[in-house]
């Protein structure tokens, strides 16, 4: 289980360094207004990611229950999240062709006073595969879910995750209801910071994600469960970075630390899935219609 979360956190570290190791993914060459557009799909994705895999049943134990889950996800990057229309705000520079976001493929350019300015390309991702783990304990039809990894160093990066969710089974108060119904509220936070010595590579990301949902499930033969839910979610990321402007396109903004607040494009999600319970093991899979359509596959130990 430690390896799964370590892999996830290592992915984030690799993702960050990929931005420098891969040629021309120099996101720190963008002014704040364009940085927010470049990274907005990432803010949206993190909201989608953290708000996935939170349930596979609305039935919460009336006595004591415990669950440990590992969830894998495959989030499809939609085309409208792969490009943005740049507005450099420089004299004489207009009508710049659409350029790649952090997930995009092709970057644009313009001819400015100091020569060509080349936008950073993206990671050329058509989907994002990631996983996460979580613990949950329940009592009196109420479940507390936790995701936690303390701020830890991986190379020149420090990463930490905290998530908490509370779920209550409403149908426990309505005995004749043919399905189980629950409501759930969730908060997840990701902290990431570059801790190396190269000032021009500095970056810090704090992603905050909130979700509230209502979901229902029905179990057949005490083994097969079908579940569905509707969820409202929102996400925002605070991004601090060193704006590297060697050609001095932006003399009042360049070559100093900048702060950007990026709101994700997350709002509503619909989930439909199924689960199979074999003894203490549960395997579940679901499809999530959200800003990033996401398919998840979970494996749980459920007592």
């Amino acid at each position: 289980m430690k390896n799964i979360l370590s892999t996830f956190l290592l992915f984030l570290s690799i993702f960050y360094y990929q931005c420098f190791a891969q040629s021309n993914i120099k996101f720190n060459s963008l002014p704040p207004t364009e940085t927010s557009q470049y990274f907005q799909p990432l803010a949206t994705y993190l909201g989608t990611y953290f708000s996935t895999g939170n349930y596979y049943t609305a039935d919460v134990s009336s006595t004591f229950g415990f669950r440990f889950s590992i969830i894998g996800m495959w989030s499809v990057v939609p085309d409208n999240q792969k490009t943005f229309n740049p507005e450099p705000g420089l004299p004489g520079v207009t009508d710049v062709a659409p350029t790649a976001t952090v997930f995009g493929t092709k970057a644009s350019y313009f001819l400015g006073n100091e020569g060509y300015f080349v936008y950073p390309t993206g990671l050329s991702l058509k989907a994002v595969p990631l996983g996460i783990y979580q613990f949950a304990g329940s009592l009196f039809n109420t479940e507390l879910m936790l995701r936690f990894f303390p701020n830890s160093k991986f190379g020149d990066a420090k990463v930490g995750v905290f998530g908490i969710g509370v779920k209550h089974e409403i149908s426990s108060h309505i005995p004749l209801l043919p399905v189980n119904v629950a409501v759930q509220i969730l908060y997840n936070q990701l902290n990431f910071e570059y801790t190396g010595n190269e000032t021009d590579k500095y970056g810090k990301l704090t992603s905050k994600n909130f979700a509230i949902n209502a979901h229902a499930s029905k179990t057949f033969l005490e083994m097969f469960t079908v579940y569905t839910g509707l969820q409202y979610e929102s996400s925002s990321s605070d991004f601090t970075y060193y704006f590297d402007d060697p050609d001095n396109f932006y003399p009042t903004l360049g070559n100093r630390i900048q702060d950007v607040k990026i709101d994700g494009d997350n709002h509503f999600r619909y989930t439909l899935g199924g689960a199979i319970k074999l003894g203490f093991f549960v395997i579940n899979t679901d499809m999530n219609i959200a800003s990033f359509t996401t398919y998840s596959l979970g494996l749980s130990l459920d007592f």
Binding site: V118, S124, K126, A127, P129
Partner: peptide, 18 residues
């Protein structure tokens, strides 16, 4: 999943030579 799901597309870089 590990062998047939490749999430990466072709990757383009603008090379500025001066």
């Amino acid at each position: 999943l590990s062998n047939s799901c490749d999430p990466f597309e072709d990757f383009y870089v603008n090379l500025a030579m001066d």
